[in-house]
């Protein structure tokens, strides 16, 4: 898989997937006008990539990914697709990969913290919640 880079806009997040360094970043605002169209190709690429890694199951436990979420707003439609992305990485973690999921939030923004806690609960993955002061 090639690296993924999507520029942020007023309504869509910045997305960076550095395959070589195994880091994934999703930051900014996520409320695309057409949420399916926006996330569809990203989901497809990550799905393909993770499926490819899972074919070589004995190597998966040597993998370590850093997921960095630094969002200021997520609409409820986007949460579905963020959960799908997390679910792909969870599949790797269930096969022994280390998934380090960092959820950044502004110290006073308890809503984005709560969004992260909710997603963590739903997907049953531990997040590192990191306040920006």
């Amino acid at each position: 898989m090639e690296n993924l880079y999507i520029e942020p806009t007023e309504i869509t997040p910045k997305i960076v997937f550095d395959v070589k360094n195994k880091t994934f970043e999703l930051s900014g605002i996520s409320r695309p006008e057409d949420v399916v169209a926006f996330y569809e190709s990203i989901i497809f690429k990550i799905d393909q990539y993770v499926s490819h890694l899972l074919k070589n199951e004995s190597e998966v436990n040597k993998l370590k990914f850093d997921l960095n979420f630094d969002l200021t707003y997520i609409n409820s439609a986007s949460s579905k697709y963020i959960l799908q992305i997390l679910d792909f990485f969870k599949k790797l973690s269930l096969k022994g990969a280390i998934i380090n999921c960092n959820w950044y939030y502004e110290d006073l923004d308890d809503q984005i913290l709560e969004d992260g806690e909710d997603l963590s609960d739903v997907i049953r993955m531990d997040f590192n919640f990191i306040a920006r002061i």
Partner: peptide, 9 residues
């Protein structure tokens, strides 16, 4: 909502 057909949960 994660894997239902509908585009939003």
């Amino acid at each position: 909502g994660v894997y239902i057909e509908k585009d939003t949960p």
